[in-house]
Every structure is written in C-alpha cells, then in structure tokens.
C-alpha cells in the first residue's frame, strides 16, 4: 500500500542502510538527511486525514486535520538543518586536518 507513512518508513530504512554501507562522510551526512526526511514524511502523513480541512477556526469548518504533528515537524526540520550544517563544517575541518573525507582512511 502506497501512502505517506509507509514511504516514510522506507526512506528511514534507506537512510539507515546508507549510513551503514558508506564510508564517505558526505554520503553519510546525506543518508542522515534522507533518514530525517523519512521521519518528516511519516509525521506529516499521520496528521493528514483525507478530505479534511486546514485547522483554521472559522464558521463551517468542522472536520480538520491534526495540526500537532505538523508543528512538531517544523521544530524537527530546524534541528535537522542545524545538525547537517554542523556536520558539514566538521567535515571541512577534518579535510583540512587529515586531507581526506573517508572515515576508513583517517589515521
């Protein structure tokens, strides 16, 4: 069944696979991002109910989608951005120190 929740879980596992199999640090950071996006998709789609409206209080709006997971994901995306940026900065430093971005070659 193709829906947001299942695709989110698949993306999560793909990211995990990427972290385990890669040794290049940039690719590992990319895998972390993929894993994070899987989580975002998972949360966004668990709040979504088909046919319901946005949660803006107005006359005539009765069936609304759940806004809480969407609010959580805004926080999570910001945190994920921080982690990715920090990881890339550390990788630049590592490249200056070791001359490589491959974890296996760093001695």
């Amino acid at each position: 069944m193709i829906n947001g929740i299942n695709i989110g879980i698949i993306l999560f596992l793909v990211g995990l696979y990427g972290i385990v199999t890669n040794k290049n640090l940039i690719k590992i950071v990319m895998s972390i991002s993929v894993m994070g996006n899987g989580i975002v998709l998972f949360f966004i789609s668990l709040g979504y109910i088909k046919g319901n409206l946005a949660p803006i209080i107005n006359s005539g709006v009765e069936h609304i989608v759940d806004p809480v997971p969407h609010a959580l994901m805004l926080t999570m995306i910001v945190i994920n951005l921080c982690i990715t940026a920090l990881a890339l900065i550390i990788i630049v430093w590592l490249h200056k120190e070791y001359g490589t971005i491959d974890l296996g070659e760093m001695k």
Binding site: M35, I39, I90
Partner: peptide
Amino acid sequence: KKVSLKASIKYLIIGSIASFFFLFAIGLVY
C-alpha cells in the same frame, strides 16, 4: 584538535540515529 574532530563526527552520526529512533517511537505512540 585532530582526534577530537573525528570523535565529534562519530558522536554526531550515532547521535542522529538515536534521535531518529526516538522520534520514530514518538510517532508510533502518537
């Protein structure tokens, strides 16, 4: 400098996996 950078990136990678597991569990609870 040299060793701590490597330790930091290791901690970052494993720490992010931990955070995602935690979030996944929160999602299922929710």
